[in-house]
Amino acid sequence: MQSKALEILVGFFVCLGVAAVFVLTFRVASLDSYGGGDTYSVTAKFANIGGLKTGAAVTMAGVKIGRVRSIQIDPASFEAVVKIDIASSYDKIPEDSSAKILTAGLLGDQYIGLEPGGLDEYLADGSELMLTQGAIVLENLIGQFLSSQTGGEDDKLADAIGKLANSLEQQKAQP
């Protein structure tokens, strides 16, 4: 009734579409980053999380092992409480590992890097990472640099950096 050619064309179309879906899933998207598998969650407190967002990556030695589930404020200490989901396959992470908030490249996204400790006890669901280092905030850094430079001869440079810091501060305050 309908020609074979038509059926072949439709088959070709469906193959092409499915192939495209596969390319997108394996070539474009990173399979490992999606929290589809089993995870366990641990918390970490940071003095300042900078621009960290939920969904940000959690890595160890550069390998992605989990992602940030939620970010809240501890009402008592006013620290940021970050809840992290780690894939269950990584269940031998020493309990005294430390967490740092790092930046991918100069302007990139912020993520959490874990550095392994040496204990024989491992992180489990509900553990807390005790050793943390918050985000490095560019403005603070510049401020520190300036105070260490005061009294020096290159006033012009200090001036320029001071203006830069101010404008950064203002921009941050605006939105």
Binding site: F13, V14, L16, G17, A20, V21, V23, L24, V28
Partner: peptide, 8 residues
């Protein structure tokens, strides 16, 4: 399917 092809 068309969207996948378009994106690729």
């Amino acid at each position: 399917l068309l969207t996948a092809i378009f994106s690729v």
